[in-house]
Design a protein around this nucleic acid. Structure first.
Length: 421
RNA sequence: GGGUAGGUGGCCGAGUGGACAAUGGCAGCAGGCUGUAAACCUGCCGCGCUACGCGCUACGGGAGUUCGAAUCUCUCCCUGCCCA
């Protein structure tokens, strides 16, 4: 079994009746206590945060993106600066996504206006379909790999398992991902199966392409929302000599679907290696994922939310919406002298009022994005610390109960489906 | 005092006889966002309703012309600029 020398996972299941586990991932750039949330820094920066900020927050690792860094500034150039860690001055672990997500986000996602989870939002919340003037999609997939039209200048590029791994080796992250295709929730069974099988072949090719054993290579389970596909995928991917595993692809149309996908997959993954859940990170998802045996998560939500004025708050906070945030742009906070979250220890909550932050957001002052991101990341990382402590003390079920029972009752509770469109 | 340009919904600003409750932009309000083409996107934005429709009030004030006026005429008020 090919295993990176400096990379290993140690962990144990800690809760009877669940797959929840406590552990640590050892990497060449230090350890990650798990379960843990990794902020996303697509372009070799967690937006609006300096590495010093991240260290101050206790961030244990970040996730950057192969496709984006390949386009700009270019993998060779990152290499020229000594690799991603030196380039961005981040001394702790880094994971890079393979670019497989962009096959989706620049392809079907734009075309259909969908996200990884959830229903259809026609012409709502998504930019125009990603096509060039001639009507060409920005991403096109075949057996060999994914052909992209750069969203920056329209130039043509192709990512294959081999080139993705080669780029990721140049970037030099501690954990890299096999090249995969993230399928759309709108893709049917047949297409999802076809894409899954192709991703399996790409997984083998990714392993064969790898030349640097110091980087941990994660395999990605696909199969969409179908039980038999997920089982086939986890069986296939789980049997390969990857250093870790990730659950990717469409996670269905609802939270319940996502939970099922985890139930179908995680139990079949080798226990001695870490498991990552790609692109997931709402508060409830973290609890459900941890309970189902996920070790690490990444998600753009806390930082993206922060840039639009949506700040994470604890269950029961007046004004909380169903995504667990309050929207600081609302006029109701105009004269609010209180902190974003009572009792929060973050710099933002310790020093600034909701009213002031609202002012910054309405003025589009840059400090808003910084202070908001600081709070949201602190909130999630603190939650993960609390979760780890609860796992250690066997109080996880109570903690989860406490967070999720109240959290579901948002203020003007828009009851499940009725608000979907 | 003389001349001249102009007064449009919170602001700026189109429109110069019917298709106008009135293009746009800004501001405002609300919603959306889960491996980031995302400091982004969408919707609403005169008032009131038994609301994919109806009523009322509106384009400086008033009076007219007309089947019909933000658009034409008269008059008054106000503002900018130029000359005294």
């Amino acid at each position: 079994m090919i295993r990176a020398d400096d990379f290993n996972y140690q962990g144990t299941r800690v809760l009877d009746g669940t797959l929840a586990r406590l552990g640590r991932i050892h990497t060449p750039h230090g350890e990650i206590q798990t379960p843990e949330f990794l902020p996303v820094g697509t372009l070799a920066t967690v937006k609006a945060m300096s590495p010093r900020d991240l260290e101050g927050l206790g961030v244990q690792g970040v996730l950057a993106n192969t496709y984006h860094l390949y386009l700009r500034p270019g993998a060779e150039r990152v290499r020229h600066f000594g690799g991603l860690h030196q380039f961005m001055n981040w001394k702790r672990p880094i994971m890079t996504d393979s670019g497989g997500f962009q096959a989706f986000s620049l392809g079907a996602a734009r075309e259909h206006g969908v996200g990884k989870i959830g229903g259809i939002f026609p012409n709502e919340g998504v930019p125009e379909p990603s096509r060039t003037k001639s009507g060409e999609k920005l991403a096109h997939i075949d057996e060999d790999g994914v052909s992209f039209r750069s969203h920056i200048d329209g130039s043509r590029h192709k990512l294959t398992p081999e080139s993705s791994i080669a780029i990721q080796e140049l970037l030099g992250a501690d954990m890299i991902l096999a090249f995969d295709e993230c399928t759309s929730p709108l893709a049917g069974y047949d297409y999802t199966e076809l894409a899954m099988e192709r991703t399996h072949r790409w997984a083998v090719r990714s392993l064969e392409a790898r030349t640097n054993p110091a980087q941990a290579l994660y395999g990605i389970v696909q199969g969409g929302e179908w039980e038999d596909l997920r089982e086939r995928s986890v069986k296939f991917i789980g049997a390969l000599p990857f250093d870790g595993f990730a659950v990717g692809g469409s996670l269905g149309k609802t939270k319940a679907d996502m939970h099922k996908v985890l139930d179908w997959t995680v139990p079949h993954l080798p226990e001695d290696r870490p498991r990552h859940l790609l692109g997931i990170g709402e508060v409830s998802d973290l609890f459900e994922g941890v309970q189902r045996g996920i070790d690490t998560f990444d998600c753009v939500l806390p930082t993206r939310f922060a840039r639009t004025g949506h700040l994470l708050v604890a269950p029961g906070t007046p004004g909380i919406g169903r995504r667990g945030t309050i929207n600081l742009r609302q006029v109701r906070y105009a004269d609010d002298k209180g902190p974003v979250l009572e009792g929060c220890a973050c710099y933002t909550c310790q020093n600034f009022s909701r009213g002031y932050l609202r002012h910054l957001y309405l003025c589009e002052e840059l400090l808003a994005y910084h202070l908001g991101s600081l709070h949201n990341l602190h909130f999630l990382l603190d939650l993960m610390r609390t979760i780890r402590a609860a796992l250690a003390s066997k109080t996880f079920p109570a903690l989860k109960q406490q967070w999720l029972s109240v959290a579901s009752g948002s203020e003007q509770d828009p009851e499940d489906d009725s608000t979907t469109n």
